[in-house]
Amino acid sequence: MLELRLVQGSLLKKVVDAIRDLVNDASFDCSATGFSLQAMDSSHVALVALLLRSEGFDHYRCDRNISMGMNLNNMAKMLRCAGNDDIITFKGDDGSDTVSFMFESPTQDKISDFEMKLMDIDSERLGIPEAKYQAIVRMPSTEFARICKDLGSIGDTVVISVTKEGVKFSTRGDIGSANIVCRQNTDVDKPEQATTVEMNDPVSLTFALRYMNSFTKATPLSNQVTISLSSELPVVVEYKIAEMGYVRFYLAPKIEE
């Protein structure tokens, strides 16, 4: 028996919208720790890891570890039927081939029940080793989304370089080239507007912008994004989910042949 209740139901919508561009079907794992997911995109270039900790839910009951294969577009279709202020309760049963979503309006005058079919998914789990990163950039998530969108209209790949000057995003395409430098800036009215660049060693890596742009679908989840870089490692683009956990995207770099 599994029962999760989230008063801030819109959060679940945002989580599904954040990852469904990258992954079609995924296996959600439920344990005493929380509700989690790990999935690769179909070309095995990127990986998404989600964690919603049990303490973050208003009610969390998970009698035993359970994995549920779900189609994210179908999940989005169901969740779209919830009002933005609705309380969402997610229920599952051992051995059942369906799960259910219950949406309650804040005034309790409308209660909806949706049942969704589960899928059989052969998911391969990867071990993500702990790593010490050469550079960690924190910046407003909207700013990062803007940069990826702008560069994506010019080139296919972005070179992210971190030096003591700041972080530079560069691209090159048929029509020309672009460089955007963001300097550390902590002199801001609100902490979420800050950009910080923590650098142990200078680093420069190349990534496909198509994936970066897909990661920015998580922007509504968090005001800030954290980009962790090390040569020889996939970049980590992390959106923290307040009080609950995170969505982390890992993207393998491109190298010169």
Binding site: M40, S43, H44, V45, A46, L47, E124, R125, L126, G127, I128, P129, T157, T206, A208, L233, P234, Y250, L251, A252, P253, K254, I255, E256, E257
Partner: peptide, 14 residues
């Protein structure tokens, strides 16, 4: 020409 690496080259299957 740039070569796109796969995520599985970095993270082992468990």
């Amino acid at each position: 020409k740039r070569l796109q690496l796969n995520i599985t080259e970095f993270f082992p299957s468990t």
